[in-house]
Simulated scan of single mutants.
Amino acid sequence: MPDAIFAHPRLAAVYDAFDGDRDDLDAYLGIAGELSAGRVLDVGCGTGSLAILLADSGRTVMGVDPAEASLRIARSKDRTGRITWVHGDATGIPAFGADLAVMTGNVAQVFLTDDDWTRTLRGIHGALRSRGHLVFETRRPERRAWEEWASHSGPLVLDLPEAGSVERRLEVTDVSLPLVSFRYTYTFLADGAVVTSDSTLRFRDRDEVEASLAANGYRVLDVRDAPDRPGREFVFVAQRTT
């Protein structure tokens, strides 16, 4: 089940506003150009911000996400129906022959068990063409991002056109490495409704990620810094080996 922050209709509707300016997506658009990727698969596409950018650049795009509420937002942005939207996870991706598959944000870290991560990598492998590429980011465990989250737990209030004033609070609820759990609490001040969303991420180190890729039919071509968050994340550029 996807987290409420993506699956609850009221939270999906305000997700983009709280997510802020997605400067990180420009790097993925650049990588798509670098790899001459005409067909791109966006795994965990959420509300479709990257998928729309990719389609605007003339590419054929498929967005896959298990949260129907987020997909409804994504579809509403795709007014001309250019993008194929799939409700589901990476294990059930239809044949697509992608030149490139991407996982942005925290998507690669939501797979908590080795089995879930393996099934995801294999599902993406099947959706790529021969020698197609997989690019994704993960937070560096040694940077201990959860400590920064805990120190910035004060409320953020946004005044939104359709929802009115909405307050968001973040609380780190458990650190049992490699797993870190946290809770978002949203208060819709117009009617007093309170909606919470609990999430857990797995922090894998570089060697673990590289070993998992090699074991599931990929060759790591490069491990880069995230340009918008230098020193905080790894960006893996891998290629299907067959």
Rank of each mutant, 00 (worst) to 15 (best):
P2Y: 01
F6E: 00
P9C: 05
R10F: 01
A12T: 01
A13K: 03
A13R: 03
V14P: 03
D23K: 15
G33S: 07
S36V: 14
S36L: 05
G38S: 06
R39L: 04
L41R: 02
D42F: 01
G63S: 08
V64P: 04
A67E: 01
E68P: 00
A69N: 04
L71S: 09
R72V: 00
S76W: 03
K77M: 12
K77L: 10
T80S: 12
G88H: 03
A98V: 11
T104F: 07
Q109D: 06
V110I: 15
V110T: 10
F111W: 05
L112A: 07
T118F: 03
R119P: 07
R122F: 05
G123H: 04
L128C: 13
R129V: 13
R131V: 02
H133S: 09
H133N: 07
L134K: 06
R140E: 07
E142I: 06
R143V: 14
A145E: 13
E148N: 13
E148P: 00
S153F: 13
L158C: 08
D159H: 15
L160I: 13
P161D: 10
A163L: 12
R169G: 08
V172N: 09
S176A: 15
L177E: 15
P178Q: 10
L179V: 11
T185M: 05
Y186S: 11
L189F: 06
L189D: 00
D191H: 13
S197W: 13
F203G: 11
R206I: 12
L213G: 07
A215E: 12
R224H: 08
A226K: 14
D228M: 10
G231D: 09
V237P: 01
A238M: 08
R240F: 12
R240K: 15
